[in-house]
Design a protein around this nucleic acid. Structure first.
Lengths: 253, 253
DNA sequence: CGAATCGTTGAGGTCGCTCAATCATAGTGG
DNA sequence: CCACTATGATTGAGCGACCTCAACGATTCG
């Protein structure tokens, strides 16, 4: 059975306390467990079938390759995140997924998942909340690319990742382990890897943050937050009313 | 009653033919009709209540203002689009909305809407499709900002708007009426208004497109598509399986 | 007619890019 | 154990895309 101390459990619990049977129900949706090697793509075939999964261990990302070969990374996924969830709910297949580190994913039966979303369980509200948060993250990412310079943008991303990791117990107020290469950061931030390197050096020189050997360490968190113009409120919002309405027993037809 | 020749009707029909009673049902969800002046914001209060509406006439946009006063525009809305729909479904309130031109909007009863989404009507599949398309547009927008230069980015946006307008009968293969100022374009494209001006001049000089006095005219569509690396396939995708599943009568609990 | 808004153009500066080289680390096969 | 390779981090030099500042023309509206 899925323990609340798993990443997903912790994350959803952070939104609203879930009864044991809800956690158990989520566990019952889980199917095959798979391990994928660092750098490997998550097979396209999976997503064509609208497969969704929960990332249990390691980091992954979604991206798109342009005709010219450039890569744009949309999102980084950390333990407890749903991967491909919006593909199931909304059917999108514009982007690909790949593993940053070795990862463990747990497939979700997508028919049961959509069924559950329609059932009005408290769990479905929690999951819609998570989906809404992912949307907000994406929009904030768009703002980063459009209207924030490289320094602010980078600091912003690193703080956001820290906040998300903290929710699942993988970060504290001092920092976190981060397996992202400067090249991955660059493709997420819309920068060149070389410039990412310089921005990180700059953050180190001004005494805000270090990022060496896979470890992000905050040196001066308040100043970092100031530099990044960071307001993490977009990460914890209210629940999604659709599932709430259904959970409240709204009759519709 | 809502005629199929309304913008929404045309748009949803482009996805899948909707029976008359579905169109009628959509019409029955519509409440108060309002007119908003060009430049005016759509009152915050509306969205706090998770109000959604259909844009019937004119153009609007969603945006966010940064601490430094910069503006990032997320989406432009054209007739037939749902505004604030994802706020209802997913509860987001990070961004604001404003009218580009004078607009007519038709409010939707949000309780009935969420109820309808859970009911499994064919209409709900069509609406989820529209929501998925909006998501895809947002992701493409993110790619624009991250990995395409000003020329490509601008051409891409103008082509996308043309394709969307064509779906509701407001554009043809020669061009369309576009009320966006260079300043609005700039805030969507993450550029300065001055640079937008130069990019538009450039597109005109190379004989691809003119944008003068509110009219976008294609001069050399194939070349424009090539310059923009434009592939409009993200605009018409398959339906969303959630509503489809429910419509097919999947029992879940 | 004055005010406001938008579009247009020039000049100069800067942020972030490309190209190129060096160094560190880890893995691999001989 | 040691080349040999591959990957990633780091740094410098030079360049170009896009920005800012400033000015001016066109249009609209009260």
């Amino acid at each position: 059975m899925l323990q609340p101390q798993t990443a997903v459990g912790r994350k959803l619990n952070a939104f609203a306390p879930l009864a044991d049977n809800e956690i158990a129900f989520l566990a019952s949706l889980q199917r095959r467990r798979r391990r994928i090697r660092a750098g490997a793509p998550l097979a396209d075939a999976d997503w064509k079938q609208r497969q969704a999964c929960i990332l249990e261990r390691g980091w992954a990302y979604s991206y798109k390759i342009l005709p010219g070969g450039e890569r744009q990374i949309f999102q980084f996924y950390i333990p407890g995140d749903f991967i491909g969830f919006s593909s199931v709910l909304l059917r999108r297949c514009e982007h690909a997924f790949a593993a940053v580190t070795d990862i463990d994913i747990c497939e979700i039966d997508s028919a049961s998942l959509t069924g559950m979303m329609l059932s009005g369980r408290p769990l479905s509200a929690a999951i819609l909340w998570a989906a809404a948060r992912d949307e907000a993250v994406l929009e904030e990412h768009l703002v980063d690319l459009g209207r924030r310079n490289a320094l602010v943008r980078t600091a912003h991303l690193l703080l956001e990742l820290g906040a998300r990791l903290q929710l699942v117990g993988l970060a504290n107020e001092n920092g976190y382990q981060c397996p992202l290469s400067q090249s991955l950061l660059a493709d997420a931030l819309g920068l060149s890897p070389i410039h990412v390197n310089r921005v990180l050096r700059r953050l180190r020189e001004v005494g805000c943050l270090t990022f060496r050997k896979g470890a992000v360490v905050y040196l001066d968190l308040p100043r970092l937050v100031a530099i990044a113009e960071y307001d993490g409120s977009y990460l914890d919002q209210d629940p999604a009313p659709l599932a709430v309405a259904r959970a409240a027993g709204v009759r519709t037809r």
